[in-house]
Simulated scan of single mutants.
Amino acid sequence: MSTHDDLPHRLAQSYPDTPDHLHRLRTRLATAAAADGILDIAYRTVDSPVGSLLLAATDIGLVRVAYQREDHDTVLQTLADRVSPRILHAPARLDATARELQEYFTGARRTFDLPLDWRLSAGFRATVLHRLSDIGYGHTASYAAVAALAGNPKAVRAVGTACATNPLPVVVPCHRVVRSDGSMGGYLGGVDAKRALLTLEEAPGKAHT
């Protein structure tokens, strides 16, 4: 039976030094790793109007979306520590996610239809994130309103923390949470990215209560 350690060596022997051999090698390696049951997390990057996004998925679903400013290498290391070290660049496994994001950024999609792996969120933070889809496309809600939706009207600061640590930005729309006076508030992708997403959705500046 083949082992994880000898996969790269075996596959490298199958390809000559041609311009596309690296791409073909990665594809073959991802396929072989999946077949051998040693691929727990697949990842890829995609370009977007808000910069390069790292996408990562488990067998359960999309587990991470990360902005460039979060440092993709650091994010991958965190995934290795918290989920599994068996991570591989396997773009094909994230084709559906990449396609839905492209549709969203071109204005052709308003909601995402993707399986999600929520394991990086827990407790009240997870409760908050699960309620963000209640804020419809083109709308915003205040931190206080989201706290009420999550069942704890006094936990406004905790809502801010949940949004700041959202492992699935864009797909789980924490960008729709703004201050009660309508100002942007913070955002893990940066204020410019938050503004760009709200502009894309043509969300009103005033928060809904």
Rank of each mutant, 00 (worst) to 15 (best):
A126Y: 06
T140L: 07
A33H: 01
S142G: 08
K154V: 00
R28A: 15
L39I: 05
S121A: 12
E70Q: 11
D181G: 14
F124W: 02
D192C: 11
T27A: 14
T199Y: 10
A158E: 02
I135F: 06
A196H: 14
E100S: 03
L116H: 06
M1A: 05
E202T: 01
R24V: 07
A145K: 14
T111G: 03
D95W: 09
R99T: 10
R86W: 07
R125C: 07
L120I: 13
G189Y: 08
L114R: 12
P16H: 00
R10H: 15
L7T: 04
V178R: 10
L114G: 13
R93T: 03
T45R: 13
D181S: 12
G51D: 03
L88K: 11
A150M: 12
P19V: 14
V75Q: 14
R195G: 13
L53D: 13
D17H: 11
A32M: 06
R195K: 10
A155Q: 05
L22M: 14
P49L: 13
S121I: 00
T199C: 11
P115G: 07
H9Q: 15
L101C: 03
V171R: 02
M184N: 13
A32T: 07
A32K: 03
P173G: 01
P153D: 09
L88Y: 08
R157C: 02
T161F: 04
L39Y: 06
V46T: 15
S14L: 10
A12W: 10
P153F: 04
D181M: 15
S180E: 08
T31P: 01
V171S: 04
V63L: 09
L55C: 08
L120Q: 09
